[in-house]
């Protein structure tokens, strides 16, 4: 028993030490900002995120926090549903019971969350729906990007880059998910009418190690590959690592989507990707819209976010807007 206790205490000590060494700022996206000082009019916004396991959603929370931090009278309470629909449903109920002034939700799925959102609306709390929508019209405003448009922009960029001819590998996110389907459909529309041939396509489940595996297989099978189109930047990076291990990374161009600062943009800066297309989080726009609503203005029901493309030539200038 004594040895067991010793082990546990050593473990606890280690955890403590490790905990102290981490950057305190790195996990602040998950915690709420302390209320503003004094008795000034305070707006409380409840934010329910469907899954903080995804870096892009961590970024969304960070963007919301950054935008909210610049406004004194706003406080945002963040909740993470950990990819569980029912947990997210109770978030909405908790926010209603707590009497927040506005709810921002990035829902996991439409159908089961439509009713809780409608109930919150019925109590007079405005709701901003981010990224994924809910059904019907019982919400104040939807803010999201268009994956089809981004996929199409990628397809058109590829068509121009390859001068309308070449062999392309497509590493799909997940062919059963809506973003995966849209990024695929958009891409197909973008390359339509050219001689570009998709010789190999596989699901990499949005994961870098899976992308690397599939790319290994593609490399073994095809001696000539002109370009790799991956549905997200980690996928493009995994493909790059596979090609690099085979000594063939110079023979092909890598295209990714999402353009997070620490992923896609970093890869473009390092010269690994030929281009990455931003899938905007809408964090800043959500807070801007929230302030308009709270100040009594009417806002558009649907706000479609624009995208930007980043290539090695324009990444330092902040990329170019996608038309």
């Amino acid at each position: 028993m004594r040895t067991g206790l010793k082990l546990v205490s050593v473990m606890a000590l280690m955890l403590f030490v490790c905990g102290c060494r981490t950057d305190p700022d790195s996990n602040s996206a998950g915690t709420a900002k302390p209320p503003a000082q004094g008795d000034q009019a305070n707006w409380t916004i409840g934010m329910s995120q469907c899954n903080l396991g995804e870096p892009w959603r961590v970024q969304m929370n960070a963007d919301i926090k950054a935008a909210a931090d610049s406004i004194d009278e706003v406080e945002v309470v963040f909740k993470d549903a950990q990819n569980d629909t029912l947990k997210q449903r109770s978030h909405i109920e908790e926010f209603v019971n707590a009497g927040v002034d506005l709810i921002i939700i990035s829902p996991k799925e439409a159908q089961p969350l439509t009713e809780p959102v409608a109930k919150a609306m019925a109590t007079g709390i405005p709701v901003i729906v981010l990224d994924r929508s809910v059904l019907g019209d019982q919400f104040t405003c939807f803010i999201g990007a268009d994956n089809k448009k981004i996929g199409k922009a990628a397809g058109e960029w590829i068509k121009a880059e390859l001068k309308g001819k070449g062999k392309v590998i497509e590493l799909r996110g997940l062919s059963t998910s809506t973003p995966g389907q849209d990024r695929h459909d958009g891409f197909v529309a973008g390359i339509a009418g050219s001689d570009i041939e998709v010789v190999f396509e596989a699901d990499m489940k949005w994961l870098e190690p899976e992308a690397r595996k599939e790319m290994d297989s593609a490399l073994a099978r095809f001696d000539n590959i002109d370009l790799v189109y991956a549905h997200n930047d980690p996928g493009a990076h995994g493909a790059y690592l596979a090609a690099k291990a085979a000594g063939r990374q110079k023979d092909m161009i890598f295209v990714g989507i999402d353009a997070l600062p620490q992923e896609g943009i970093a890869y473009v800066k390092q010269g690994l990707l030929g281009v990455t297309f931003q899938y905007p989080t809408g964090g800043q726009e959500a807070i801007d819209t929230a302030m308009q609503i709270l100040n009594g203005a009417t806002v558009e029901k649907q706000i479609v976010l624009g995208s930007r493309s980043f290539t090695p030539d324009n990444v330092d200038q902040g990329g170019a807007a996608v038309k």
Partner: peptide
């Protein structure tokens, strides 16, 4: 917790 929810990368 240790990674702050995002990947510990070369960036």
């Amino acid at each position: 917790y240790l990674s702050g929810g995002s990947k510990v990368s070369t960036a």
